[in-house]
Design a protein around this nucleic acid. Structure first.
Length: 930
DNA sequence: GACATCACG
DNA sequence: GACGTACGTGATGTCC
C-alpha cells in the first residue's frame, strides 16, 4: 500500500533512546557472564512502553528506529572540528550498541542507519517524504536539531515528558518558526555539536536579528545596518563561519536510501523471536511483562549464580495475583510466625489520607520475602465511594481492628524484630496515634538518601524503577482525582490487596538491594547516626505541633485586606486604569509599555521581569512601583500566612502540625511542608508580627535556641582561616572584623555601610561567590565587586584553596562530603557551559550547609534524652534554631540543658577549631522569644 | 502544570 | 573569551 493521506509515520531517534536508557539505569550486568546490559535493558523497557502506548486513532501505521552509523559524516569533511568536543563513549556502553539494533529487530520494528550520514539526516529525508505524500509524521526525540523539520503534518514528541512540539512549540524554543531555525542555529552555534556560530550571539539575539531582517542571507548582506557596533562587527567578521555553521546544522533531506516508507509498515512482533531475545539478555521482569502483553508464556530463564558485587534485583518477578489477603487470626498468625523466623518484616500502612494527624488506619501490608506479601484490610467499606447511597457497612472478609492489633502490636514493639518501611515516619505516626511505638526500624528512603543524595529523589516510584526495574502500581486509578476522588477505605478489597501488598514487597526488595550497599559507600555511620534516629524524634515533634491563635491571624488578615484595597485604589489612579496587581505580566505592561519607564527586561517567556529588585530600583523615581511592592508584601503575608495558616490549625488539637521531609534537601537540611513553618516572616516589622500568633499553651513559655553564625564558623574550620577562627574565639562581631580586615578600617571606626558590605561578602563566600552575584547583591559595579573578592582571597587565602580543592574533589569523585561523612553528589560538576558554574557553587556550599545540618541533627537526636527530666517539648526546627515549649519556671533549666547539647553536638566524632555558640530567648509568643 | 514571585536560613 | 550566576528550600497566584 502506498504511504499517503491517513497514514502516520513514527521515527524514533535511536541514539537518544540509548543515551537516555544508559543514564537512567544503574550499571546492570548480565548475571551469567557480567556483560554490561543496563542500557539495553532500559532501551527495551522504553521500546516496550512505546509499543504498548501505541493504541487508538493516533497510532502509527509506519515506524522505524533510526541510528547513527560510524563517526565520520559529510559534515566532518566540511568542518573537521564538528562534534570534536564530544566525550568518548563510555566503555561499558560500547558493547551494548549492537545489542540495541538486535533489540529493535526483535520487537519487529524497522531499524535503519547509513554510513556517512547522521540519524538526523535519515529522519529529515523520511519526514519530508511523508509530508510530500500527504501523510503525518511524528519524530520521537527531543533533539532541537530536528526542530527545523516541524510543520505540515510533521511534529516532534518527547517520549519521556510526553510533550508534543508543533510549529508554535518550535517558536517558543527558538523565537522563530521551523523554516528559520537553521538560520538562528547558524548564528547561535551549538556547543554540544561544536558548531561555531557567531561569537557572542545566543539564541535570543539570533532570533531577534532573523526576525528583523527576514533570513540569514539578507541579514549578512545588510549587516552594515546593525546599530550595535559589536554585533555588526561580529557578523561582518564571521560571515563565512556563520554560513558554514548553517551548512552544518542544515539536515540533508535527500539522503540516498535503499528502502521506502512503505517498507516501514507497522508489524506485530513475533512472540517467539522477541521472548527468545529477552531471555538471552536475562531480562526476567520484562520477559514476563512482554509475555503477558502478547498472551504468550514467559520464558524460563535459568538462575545463574550471581556475580559478586552485583545486587540481585530481578530474582522474583512481581505478581500481584500472588499476594494474600488476610482476613482472620489464623492467617495472620502464620505471617507473624514467618516474621519471627526471619527477624524482620517490611511493613506499610494504608490510611484515609496523607495528613497523619487526621488520617485513619485502613489496612496493613507485610512482606517477608520478595514476592511473598500480604494485605490485612481492616475498615474497608462495602460500597465504592461513587455510590451515592453507599452505606457505611464494612466489607466482608476483614479482621476486627482490635483483634488484629492485639496480634501485631507485640511484634511491632519487639526489639528483636526489625520493621522496614519506606518513609517510616509516616507509618510510625499512624501507629503512634493508636498508642503503638514501632521500633526498631529501617527506612529504605533514608538508606537511599544516605547513599544517593543529589543523584535523584528517594520516593518509592523512583527507587523501584531505578533499582528493581519495576514500575509500582499507580495509586491514581484506584482513588481517582479531583472532586470524585475516594479514600483508600472505599477501594475494593482485591484491588487494594494488589496495590498495598506490592508496596510492602517493593520495600522489602529495596531493602535487600540497598542496605548492603551502605557500607560499600561508607555511609553506614551517616545512616545510623544522622538519618534513622531522627525518625522518632521528628515524629514526636510533628505530633506535638505548635499552638497558633486563630483570632490573631484573622484580625491581621482583615487589616491586610483593608490596606490592600486602599493600595489598589491608589494604584489604579496612578496607572490611569484598573489592572490585576497580582499579575506580574500586567504590572510589567503598565510600567514599561504604558508608563514608558526605562530598564524593562524581558525574561525567557517574553514578559517583563518585575521582581522586587527591579521594582526597588524604579521605586526611587516613581510612586507606582513602590506601591506595587507594598501591595505585594501585604498580599504575601495575607495569602501565605494569615489566611493559609488558619486552615492548618488542627481542629482536635488547636495546634499546627507541620511535616518535615528528611530526604528532601540534597545537603542534609530538613524541609518543612504543609505548612512550611521554616519560612515564617521575621525580616520586616510587619511580617514579624505574624509570629505573635504562635503562642505558648496556658502556663507555658516558648523558648528558642539558635546557633550563632554556624555556617561561617564551619567555613572557618573547614577552610582553615586563622583570622576567622581567632575572631570567633575572641567573640568579635565577625562581619565587622571582616570589614576591618578588608577595608583597613579600625573596628572602632566601623560604619554600618562598610559592615553591610563585608557581611554580603561573607555570605557570598559560603554560596560560592562570583563577581556578578556580589555586584547584584550590593548594587555596585561588577569590577568593584570583583575587587572586593580579590581582596578577600588575599586576606584569607585559605578560602581560595578550599574552593579549588572542593571543586577538584567533586570532579574526581562525583560528590562532596560534610565533616560527618555525609555525601552530596554533584552529577553536573563536569557539565560544559553555564551549567558548570552552577554545579561548582553548589559543590562549594554543600559541605558547609551540610555540616551545619548534620550538627543540628545530632543535637535533635540527643535532645529527648537530655531534656527527659524537664516539663518541656521540642516543637520546631528552623535550620539553625530549635523551638521548645516548657512549663513556666523551668525555662532556665531547659535553656541550660538544650544549650549544652547544641554547643557540643559535634562531639565526639568531629573536633572543631571553632566553638559553637547558641543564643537563647523566651516569651509568650514566637516574636517575643526571638 | 510552568513560571514568577517572595517568605525563610 | 563568553556564557549566566550568588547556596538551600516551599507556597501562592496567574495564565495557558
Amino acid at each position: 500500500m502506498t504511504f499517503g493521506k491517513g497514514h502516520h509515520l513514527h521515527l524514533i531517534d535511536g541514539s537518544a533512546f540509548i543515551f537516555r536508557a544508559y543514564h537512567a539505569l544503574p550499571p546492570l550486568t548480565r548475571k551469567s557472564d557480567g556483560l554490561p546490559i543496563g542500557a539495553v535493558a532500559g532501551f527495551c523497557n522504553m521500546l516496550h512502553r512505546y509499543v504498548e502506548g501505541n493504541t487508538g486513532p493516533d497510532a502509527p501505521t509506519h515506524v522505524a528506529v533510526i541510528f547513527d552509523k560510524g563517526s565520520h559524516t559529510f559534515r566532518n569533511d566540511m568542518y573537521d572540528l564538528y562534534k570534536a568536543n564530544r566525550d568518548e563513549m563510555p566503555e561499558d556502553l560500547r558493547p551494548q550498541i549492537p545489542l540495541t539494533r538486535n533489540a529493535t529487530e526483535a520487537f519487529n520494528i524497522a531499524c535503519k542507519e547509513k554510513e556517512g550520514w547522521e540519524a538526523d539526516d535519515i529522519i529529515a529525508t523520511l519526514a519530508v517524504q511523508a509530508r510530500a505524500a500527504g501523510g503525518r509524521c511524528t519524530i520521537i526525540s527531543s533533539d532541537k536539531d530536528l526542530m527545523q523539520l516541524v510543520g505540515g503534518g510533521v511534529e516532534m514528541l518527547d517520549a519521556m515528558k510526553n510533550n508534543r512540539i508543533d510549529r508554535d512549540g518550535v517558536f517558543e524554543k527558538f523565537g522563530v518558526y521551523p523554516e528559520r531555525v537553521v538560520d538562528v542555529q547558524a548564528l547561535a552555534g551549538d556547543s554540544v555539536d561544536n558548531v561555531p556560530g557567531a561569537p557572542g550571539i545566543g539564541i535570543k539575539t539570533a532570533a531577534l536579528l532573523i526576525n528583523e531582517y527576514g533570513d540569514l542571507e539578507t541579514l549578512l548582506a545588510r549587516a552594515e545596518e546593525i546599530k550595535q557596533p559589536k554585533r555588526r562587527q561580529t557578523l561582518i567578521d564571521h560571515a563565512d563561519q556563520i554560513r558554514l555553521s548553517r551548512q552544518l546544522v542544515l539536515l540533508d533531506e535527500d539522503t540516498p536510501l535503499d528502502f521506502t516508507i512503505e517498507d516501514l509498515e507497522v508489524q506485530d512482533p513475533d512472540a517467539d523471536t522477541l521472548l527468545t531475545f529477552l531471555a538471552e539478555m536475562e531480562f526476567r521482569t520484562l520477559s514476563k511483562r512482554v509475555a503477558d502483553a502478547l498472551g504468550a508464556e514467559a520464558p524460563v530463564i535459568p538462575d545463574a549464580p550471581a556475580a559478586p558485587d552485583v545486587p540481585e534485583v530481578e530474582a522474583v518477578p512481581f505478581d500481584p495475583e500472588k499476594y494474600e489477603q488476610v482476613g482472620d487470626a489464623a492467617a495472620l498468625q502464620k505471617w507473624i510466625d514467618a516474621i519471627y523466623e526471619r527477624g524482620y518484616v517490611a511493613i506499610d500502612t494504608e490510611t484515609t489520607g496523607l495528613n497523619e494527624m487526621i488520617a485513619e488506619l485502613v489496612g496493613i501490608s507485610l512482606a517477608v520475602e520478595p514476592g511473598e506479601a500480604c494485605y490485612i484490610p481492616l475498615i474497608h467499606k462495602a460500597n465504592r465511594g461513587d455510590d451515592l447511597f453507599g452505606s457505611d457497612d464494612l466489607a466482608d472478609g476483614q479482621m476486627d481492628l482490635e483483634e488484629c492489633l492485639k496480634l501485631l502490636t507485640p511484634m511491632l514493639e519487639d526489639e528483636s524484630i526489625l520493621k522496614i518501611g519506606q518513609n517510616m515516619k509516616y507509618d510510625a505516626k499512624i501507629f503512634a496515634q493508636i498508642g503503638i511505638t514501632v521500633a526498631p526500624i529501617d527506612d529504605t528512603m533514608l538508606i537511599s538518601y544516605a547513599q544517593h543524595a543529589g543523584l535523584h529523589n528517594h520516593g518509592m516510584d523512583t527507587l523501584s524503577e531505578r533499582y528493581l526495574s519495576h514500575s509500582p502500581i499507580p495509586i491514581k486509578p484506584l482513588l481517582g482525582s479531583g472532586k470524585s476522588a475516594i479514600t483508600f477505605d472505599k477501594v475494593p478489597l482485591d484491588e487494594a490487596t494488589k496495590y498495598a501488598a506490592e508496596d510492602a514487597d517493593i520495600t522489602l526488595r529495596l531493602w535487600q538491594a540497598l542496605k548492603p550497599q551502605l557500607h560499600r559507600a561508607q555511609v553506614t555511620k551517616v545512616y545510623e547516626t544522622l538519618e534513622r534516629p531522627l525518625v522518632p524524634v521528628l515524629a514526636d515533634m510533628e505530633r506535638s505541633g505548635i499552638k497558633v491563635d486563630r483570632d490573631t491571624l484573622s484580625r491581621m488578615s482583615n487589616a491586610f485586606a483593608q490596606k490592600m484595597a486602599g493600595l489598589e485604589d491608589e494604584l489604579y489612579e496612578l496607572a490611569g486604569r484598573k489592572f490585576n496587581v497580582g499579575s506580574p505580566a500586567q504590572v510589567g505592561e503598565i510600567l514599561f509599555d504604558e508608563m514608558g519607564l526605562e530598564g524593562g527586561k524581558k525574561g525567557k517567556t517574553g514578559k517583563y521581569a518585575t521582581g522586587a529588585d527591579v521594582l526597588e530600583d524604579l521605586a526611587t523615581e516613581h510612586e507606582l512601583p513602590a506601591r506595587v511592592l507594598d501591595w505585594r508584601q501585604l498580599s504575601k503575608l495575607k495569602s501565605t500566612y494569615t489566611d493559609a495558616l488558619q486552615d492548618h490549625i488542627n481542629p482536635d488539637t488547636g495546634r499546627v502540625h507541620t511535616s518535615y521531609s528528611i530526604a528532601g534537601a540534597s545537603t542534609g537540611r530538613l524541609a518543612s511542608t504543609d505548612p512550611n513553618l521554616q519560612n515564617i516572616p521575621i525580616r520586616t516589622e510587619e511580617g514579624r508580627r505574624i509570629r505573635e500568633a504562635f503562642i505558648a499553651e496556658e502556663g507555658k513559655t516558648l523558648v528558642t535556641l539558635d546557633y550563632s553564625q554556624i555556617e561561617l564558623r564551619i567555613l572557618a574550620h573547614i577552610a582553615d582561616i586563622p583570622a576567622l577562627k581567632e575572631a570567633f574565639a575572641r567573640g568579635d562581631d565577625i562581619h565587622a572584623m571582616t570589614a576591618s580586615e578588608m577595608f583597613d578600617v579600625p573596628m572602632d571606626d566601623m560604619t554600618p555601610e562598610i559592615r553591610r558590605r563585608a557581611k554580603a561578602i561573607n555570605f557570598g563566600v559560603i554560596y560560592g561567590i562570583s563577581g556578578f552575584g556580589l555586584a547584584r547583591n550590593l548594587r555596585i559595579p561588577r569590577s568593584e565587586a570583583q575587587g572586593f573578592i580579590d581582596r578577600y582571597f588575599e586576606r584569607f587565602p585559605g578560602i581560595r584553596t578550599y574552593m579549588d580543592d572542593t571543586k577538584a574533589f567533586a570532579k574526581e569523585h562525583g560528590f562532596v562530603q560534610t565533616l560527618f561523612g555525609r555525601k552530596i553528589h554533584t552529577p553536573n560538576i563536569g557539565a560544559k557551559g553555564p551549567h558548570a558554574g552552577f554545579a561548582a557553587r553548589a559543590a562549594i556550599n554543600a559541605p558547609i550547609q551540610g555540616t551545619a545540618a548534620d550538627v543540628i541533627r545530632r543535637a535533635m537526636i540527643r535532645m529527648p534524652e537530655a531534656i527527659s527530666d524537664l516539663p518541656a517539648k521540642m516543637l520546631l526546627q528552623v535550620h539553625d534554631e530549635l523551638l521548645f515549649e516548657v512549663d513556666k519556671g523551668a525555662e532556665q533549666d531547659l535553656i541550660e540543658a538544650a544549650r549544652e547539647v547544641m554547643e557540643n553536638a559535634n562531639d565526639p566524632v568531629v573536633r572543631l577549631d571553632v566553638k559553637l555558640t547558641v543564643d537563647a530567648g523566651q516569651g509568650q509568643n514566637w516574636a517575643e522569644a526571638h
